[in-house]
Structure formats: C-alpha cells, structure tokens
Amino acid sequence: MLTAFFENYNYYVVIILMMTGLYVVFSSRNLIKKLSGLSVFQTSVFLLYITIGKVEGGQPPIVSENHASNDSSVMVAGGGEAAIGHAGQMSDVLYSNPLPHVLILTAIVVGVATLAIGLALTVRIRETYGTIEEDELAMLDYTYNLEGTDA
C-alpha cells in the first residue's frame, strides 16, 4: 500500500495544489485574490507536466560537453556510422524528457503576460467602479442597469 502510494504520490499532492488554486478562484470575490489563485492553479499545472517528464536517476536534458564534441568529430568523419555510434553512446546516460520542459517554459512567460492583462483590467474596473469585490460590482451593475438587460 505504502509503496503503491509512493509510486505516484506526486500526482496526489499536485492535484491537491491544483484544487487549492481552483478553490481560491471560485470562492474569493476579490479580483486580485482570484488572479492570485489562478496563478497558483497555473503553477500547479506546470508541476504536473514536469513530474510526468521526470525520469528516475536522469540528468537535466543538457548533453555533457565531451559527448557533444565527440559526436561532432564523428559527424565530420562520416555521416552514416555516426548516428549508430552516437545512439550507442547515448544509452549510457539517462536524461529526463525535454519536451514538457519546452512546453512549460513558454507557458510560464505567456502566463505572466496574461496575468498582466488581468491586472490591467482589474485596475480599470477599480477606477470605474471604486471597488474590485465581485458582489459589489454586480450590485452596481444592477443599480445602474449597466448591462442593459431591461432597456
């Protein structure tokens, strides 16, 4: 039972973190706190992706210096055999999966850009309505019929 748990305990913890972030998004009315919860949710999704790409006993996906130089010298010597020799060389060092890293790397930077958009909207809402609490915003909308529903 315990070993079964430790085989994928990372998923359980990451799911708890994700749900905590989601809970902040759902339950809080303050827009900045909501965005903060969204950020936590987002970071937890990154954690999920990266844990899937982890290989037990692996190295970061940066090919060590002598490997690379070896390889290129072989490449200059002769094309066809190099690939075979290279594949043999690769097998002795274990690397983690680079693909999730690439996906998440760009997602992080895009995440901060979209966070900035959300914050800019929050600032404008605050300047217009004088509040960033959701229920008060809804109240103001209702009072002044800003949605124009019964026009």
Partner: peptide
C-alpha cells in the same frame, strides 16, 4: 513517478535528444 518507460517518456520527447545531437550540435536540448 520517474518511470523511464512511460508512454510520455519513450516517444517523441526522447527522440529529440538524439535528433538534436545529430542535426543541431548544441548541448542544451
């Protein structure tokens, strides 16, 4: 956790390790 033979870690992701060494010659995959 850390399974080297999982579907995510056996196909396209790991192919990049070898393709980079052959095509691009830069260490950081």
């Amino acid at each position: 956790y850390g399974d080297a033979n999982s579907p995510a870690n056996t196909h396209v992701g790991m192919d990049f390790m070898e393709m980079t060494a052959n095509d691009i010659h830069i260490p950081n995959v």
